[in-house]
Structure formats: C-alpha cells, structure tokens
C-alpha cells in the first residue's frame, strides 16, 4: 500500500471515528457580541486614520528608500479590514487603504490600529497574521505589523517562540530583545528614530542563511503575535530557512504596548519588490483612539 493511500485511509478513518460536538450557537454569538463593541470602536479609530492619511508621515530613517511618498489618487479609498480580504489566491489585494487591529491600549481606554495604503495588486494578504507579501521563486518582501506575544530569543527558534514578552515591555526593551534573535547579526541599531509620525527604535538584522537543522521543513518562528483583538495569541511571524534574510525593524510604543513593524527581505527580491515595500512602509500610520 502506498504512503499516499495509507495517509488517506488513516485521515478518513480517524476523522469519521470521532463524533463532532454539538455547536453551541448561543455561546458563539455571545462571544462575538462581547467583541463587537471593540470591533466597532476599532473601525471608528481606523477611519480617523483615513483622514490623517491626507498628511502621510514620511519615513525619515528608512535606508535605501527609493520612494517615501505613496502613490496618490484623486479619490479617497474605502478603508478595509486587512483580516478579511475577499480573495484566497495570490496577488489579489485591491488597491486601497487597509486597517490592522492591534488590540487595546494597556489601560483599556483606547483601541490600537495601524493603517496602510496598498497601491498595486502585486501584494498577497495574510491579514490574520498582519502581513502583506510579494514573492517569486528567487525571493520576496514582506511587511508585518504586530504586537508580539513571544519571541524566539531562547530555545529552538525553529520549534517554538519561547520568551514571553512582558506586559510592561517598552519599545526600547523590545528592540534590545530583538538583537538576541538566534542566527541573526545586528547590522545597525537599535537607535532612536522618528518614523510613521512617532518615536521609534530602529534596528536592522541580517542572516546570511537561516537554518533549521533539527527538523526538515521546519520554519524559523521569529515571534508569536496577538490577533486583531489583542486578547489572544493568533499567529506567528515565521521565515522559510535556507535563504538570506534582512529585516528592518521599527519598534514603537502605542497605548502602552510595544508594537513591531517588520520589513523583511528574503532571498533575492527584485528592485521593484523593494520599491513596493518602501512605498507601503511610507504610507504606514498608527492610531490610538479612545
């Protein structure tokens, strides 16, 4: 019997053997409604960012920026939630402004969000993990914006992110912690820099070739991150090994939370990809609205 056949048989048999639970729709709706107030407020906070985008902050400290001004259009695009983009195949993010929920401020008086402008259909979304990316066979670029829950600064970075980020971690603290990521070397920073209209800590990490030797096919899990509600860990910031990686980080304090902007280059991205990454970076802005 072939391995394919054995796997198919095992999956079907084990799945059919287990009796699914009755779904408590009342509990589902109850949890959803409990989150609804936060979602509505988040949308309002992010909508305010659209107005603020009329004066998009320039990224003052980014290196190698070929363009710091986003492409502008005569119309105001509709704000969309990056987590729910109506497509499942690559290269299908419609141009427009997208919001990324970053949860609540530490004192629970404000909702935190980021907004960015996408000006081409080159990007693929993964809003659940707060990222956009472009990739071809030789390399790619990626933008992650998140509040980290754990960092891979101890243990095996290919197995788990093991260092919990403390609730009271500041941007400065977190930037220092990022310098300890295994297999990376610090190319520059951390230094205090103004970007996205805010004070940030900026650093650049590089790795000639990340490896995950213990388990074939594993990925380097840089961080586990909170989801858009900020209430529970949702996803991760992972990296395919066996390729050069360069990451420009900006870490900022937003509502008492340390938020990470991670602009990543993997493999050999094209000049066009780098330009697109810098254009989206230049459009990025943050809001902490009560």
């Amino acid at each position: 019997m072939s391995l394919d056949h054995r796997l198919t048989e095992a999956a079907r048999h084990l799945a059919e053997r287990v009796e699914p639970p009755e779904v408590d729709l009342g509990a589902v709706r109850g949890r959803a409604r409990a989150n609804r107030r936060r979602s509505i407020a988040l949308t309002m906070a992010a909508a305010a960012v659209v107005v603020a985008l009329a004066g998009l902050p320039l990224l003052t400290a980014g290196r190698n920026l070929t363009s710091t001004q986003p492409a502008t259009t005569a119309t105001i695009e509709v704000l969309r939630d990056l987590e729910v983009t109506p497509c499942y195949m690559h290269r299908c993010v419609a141009p427009g402004i997208y919001s990324i929920g970053l949860g609540q401020a530490k004192d629970a008086t404000a909702l935190l969000s980021a907004a960015l402008r996408v000006d081409s259909r080159a990007w693929a979304p993964d809003g659940g993990r707060h990222r956009l990316w472009i990739r071809d066979d030789d390399g790619g670029v990626m933008l992650n914006v998140y509040r980290p829950h754990e960092l891979a600064t101890s243990g095996d970075p290919c197995g788990e992110a093991t260092t919990v980020v403390a609730e009271d971690t500041t941007a400065r603290d977190l930037a220092a912690q990022l310098t300890a990521l295994p297999q990376f070397h610090v190319a520059s920073g951390p230094i205090a820099t103004r970007a996205f209209g805010r004070e940030t800590q900026h650093l650049v990490l590089e790795a000639n070739r990340l490896t995950c030797p213990k388990v074939e096919g594993a990925q380097y899990n840089l961080a586990d991150i909170y989801g858009h509600t900020g209430m529970e860990p949702y996803g991760d910031s992972d990296i395919d090994p066996d390729q050069p990686v360069r990451i420009r980080f900006w870490v900022l304090d937003l509502g008492g939370r340390a938020i990470v902007v991670e602009a990543r280059q993997e493999g050999r991205p094209t000049a066009e990809m780098l330009t697109r990454l810098n254009v989206v970076l230049a459009s990025l802005t943050f809001a902490d609205e009560g």
Partner: peptide, 16 residues
C-alpha cells in the same frame, strides 16, 4: 484558513 492557522500557531507555542 482561520482554523488551520490558529492550530499551527497553537502547536508552535507548545513545548517541542
């Protein structure tokens, strides 16, 4: 997509 990605993340947070 939501379910699978949450599951992947959850396992990564467990001890190897």
């Amino acid at each position: 997509k939501v379910l699978v990605n949450q599951s992947v993340s959850w396992w990564r947070r467990r001890s190897s």
